[in-house]
Amino acid sequence: MIINNLKLIREKKKISQSELAALLEVSRQTINGIEKNKYNPSLQLALKIAYYLNTPLEDIFQ
């Protein structure tokens, strides 16, 4: 099972779900679904998340 630290990292960087969704060009519901482990992001989306949060991919999804 993948450990998902997206919410923790996003909140630590003081970025809202809506702000991150806008940067990634996805819906806020997509971010919410990823954070609640209801949706697994594509590799492309996971890499974009890591880029915009300036955090290694391995720290977000373990």
Rank of each mutant, 00 (worst) to 15 (best):
S42L: 04
F61C: 04
L45C: 06
L6F: 02
R28D: 10
P56I: 05
I60Q: 02
I60N: 00
E35A: 01
L45H: 03
S16K: 08
I3K: 14
I34R: 00
M1P: 13
E58Y: 07
I15A: 02
I15L: 12
A21T: 01
R10K: 02
N32G: 08
I34P: 01
K13D: 02
I34W: 08
Y52S: 05
F61Q: 02
K12L: 12
L43W: 13
E35K: 02
E25L: 09
N4K: 04
S18E: 14
N54L: 05
N40S: 14
E25C: 14
A22M: 13
L57E: 04
L45Q: 05
N40E: 12
Q17P: 04
D59N: 12
L45T: 05
S16L: 05
L20D: 00
E25P: 04
S27G: 06
I49T: 01
K7L: 06
Y39D: 05
T55Q: 06
Q17H: 04
L8K: 15
L43H: 14
K7D: 02
L43T: 12
E58G: 12
L23A: 15
L20W: 03
I31V: 13
K36A: 14
S42D: 11
T55K: 03
Q62A: 11
Q29C: 12
L6W: 00
Y52Q: 07
L8I: 13
M1C: 15
Y51R: 09
K7F: 06
K48N: 05
Q62M: 13
I49Y: 02
S27Q: 06
T55P: 03
I15D: 00
P56Q: 06
Q44L: 08
L24G: 01
L8T: 14
L47Q: 13
R10H: 01
I2M: 12
A50T: 03
K7G: 06
I34A: 01
I2R: 11
I49W: 03
L23Y: 11
M1I: 14
K13F: 12
L47T: 11
I2W: 12
L45G: 00
L24V: 15
K13Y: 11
S42M: 05
N5A: 06
V26K: 01
N4S: 05
A50F: 02
I15T: 05
T30F: 13
I31W: 01
A46Y: 05
I31S: 00
V26W: 03
G33F: 13
Q62E: 11
I9N: 03
Q17V: 13
K38E: 15
N4I: 05
L57N: 02
S16A: 05
T30G: 01
K13W: 08
M1A: 09
S27L: 04
L8E: 15
P56K: 08
K14P: 02
S42P: 14
L20V: 00
I60H: 02
I9V: 10
I3C: 13
T30W: 09
L23F: 14
N5Q: 09
I3T: 13
L23C: 09
K13E: 07
I9R: 02
L45Y: 02
K7W: 05
A46T: 06
A22K: 13
S16G: 06
Q44A: 13
K13C: 11
E11D: 08
L53R: 00
L20E: 00
G33H: 15
R28W: 15
A46H: 02
Y52V: 15
N54Q: 13
A22R: 15
V26I: 12
K13M: 13
T30N: 03
Q29F: 10
P56G: 05
L20R: 00
I34M: 07
P41H: 02
Y39Q: 09
L23Q: 10
L43R: 14
P41L: 08
I9T: 08
I34Y: 04
S27H: 06
I49V: 04
Q44W: 10
F61R: 03
G33C: 15
N5W: 08
K7H: 06
N32V: 14
K14L: 08
E19C: 09
G33S: 15
V26G: 02
L53E: 00
N37I: 05
D59M: 12
I15Y: 07
S18M: 13
E58H: 12
E58T: 14
Q17I: 11
I2N: 09
L23V: 12
M1R: 06
N4R: 03
D59Y: 08
A22P: 00
E19R: 14
I15E: 00
S18V: 10
R10G: 01
T55D: 01
S18H: 10
P41T: 05
Y51A: 10
E25A: 12
Q62K: 12
F61T: 03
L23N: 08
Y51G: 07
S16T: 15
L8M: 13
N5R: 08
K48H: 05
I31G: 00
P56S: 08
N54E: 14
S27F: 03
D59Q: 13
M1E: 10
A50R: 01
R28C: 13
S27T: 11
K14E: 07
F61H: 01
Y52F: 13
E19L: 08
V26E: 04
A46C: 12
N37E: 06
R10V: 05
P56R: 11
I34N: 01
A46V: 06
P56N: 08
L24D: 00
T30Y: 15
A21H: 02
E58K: 10
L6Q: 02
K36T: 15
K12N: 11
D59I: 09
